[in-house]
Design a protein around this nucleic acid. Structure first.
Lengths: 202, 202
DNA sequence: ACCGACATTGACTGATCGGTCAATCAACGA
DNA sequence: TCGTTGATTGACCGATCAGTCAATGTCGGT
């Protein structure tokens, strides 16, 4: 029941990995099926055999990226201490070393761009963004009223994405530390401001 | 010395505008020269006549976008009152209604993506980012020490880009107001924190 | 009235790419 | 041993596209 020369699961993984590396290396989604297949050491016909259309392969690659991030966050979240700790975990996970490699950043950016023309890609990113927002807002709710929590969550999420964007363009991402510090500083300020119910500046 | 049927300058402008609209509408940089030319009401051969390669047309379009933003900021900056006012002007300009149209956002995002594979595109974006950072840091220097000013400027810039990114993906940009409020709130908090030299929370 | 300069185009080309297909090969079960 | 199943590929096709070019039209100057 199984012609050995490379099991389906293994092949699929290999092709997705190859697509990821190819996209990151070339810095564009304009990669050919032949290029990806060659990098995986197989023929382009095989890629079609497993994924059907090129679009499906790209989307599978995207799901892999999203899934990896989601799984990482979920795992780390389990051993977080307290609401503030959960916040830091989410932030740290978004800037995990793995997520911060130039290759991964490039892949993310190209996927964001693709979302403009692919409803399915947009849907995937929407899921990711909702989850991120939800994680943040939930932890924030302990210290902030609902509206504020949402607003701050939006700010954090925007900053995370923004740091990614800049890292991608400049090429030299300053590394996780600077990014984490920037966002953590923002969180601390917001929490401190809510603790001192004085004048919140206009 | 000039065969009327459409002056060079007028044609170039028309083609750049057509490219912008085409990119925004399709949500991708994968637009054909023929599509752009058709939208401008000319043949594809004419596009090549004026811009040489497709790449040159795309880059010219990008320069147009960057230039428009830069000119807007410079003009507004001239009638800004005080350092804090200058900050607000830069922020407001980044989120001007014109900059916030779905079409413009889409164009920006696709250009960011292109910067990953085109050195010239990367250079153009670098110029824009440096100018933005410089404008912000300069205004911030009045209230903050150098290092802090740079850091806050980075935070603001990241947040601006991040809001753009999210607006592009969700499609429904919440409008300038929310974005401006988010960033202005960040600035106010940072300035307030520096005025009260108490404990800045770890 | 003629000419040179330039705008403009339709037709064409060479290359690329996604996708298909028939043929081959290797394993497993009967 | 043999047939079925599925992996794997080279060859191929149709479509698309950037870029070229020769031909045509239209001006402005002389």
């Amino acid at each position: 029941m199984s012609p050995i020369p490379g099991r389906p699961e293994s092949r699929r993984r290999a092709l997705i990995g190859a697509a990821l590396r190819e996209i990151a290396d070339r810095g564009t989604l304009d990669v050919t099926v032949a290029q990806i297949a060659a990098r995986a050491g197989v023929s382009s016909a095989l890629a079609h055999h497993y994924f059907g259309a090129k679009e499906d392969l790209i989307l599978a690659t995207m799901r892999h990226l999203l899934g990896a991030l989601g799984a990482g966050v979920a795992a780390d979240l389990r051993r977080a201490r307290g609401p503030r700790g959960r916040l830091s975990v989410v932030i740290a996970a978004s800037f995990a070393p793995e997520q911060f490699h130039r290759a991964t950043i490039a892949a993310w950016l190209t996927f964001y761009a693709k979302a403009l023309s692919s409803p399915e890609a947009a849907r995937l990113l929407d899921v990711y963004q909702r989850r991120l927002r939800s994680n943040l807002a939930h932890a924030l709710r302990v210290s902030l009223p609902r509206t504020e929590a949402m607003r701050v969550a939006d700010g954090i999420a925007a900053m995370i994405d923004g740091v990614y964007l800049r890292g991608a363009v400049t090429g030299r991402a300053d590394g996780p530390e600077a990014a984490v510090a920037l966002v953590e500083g923002y969180v601390d300020l917001q929490l401190a401001a809510s603790r001192l119910p004085e004048r919140s500046p206009a």
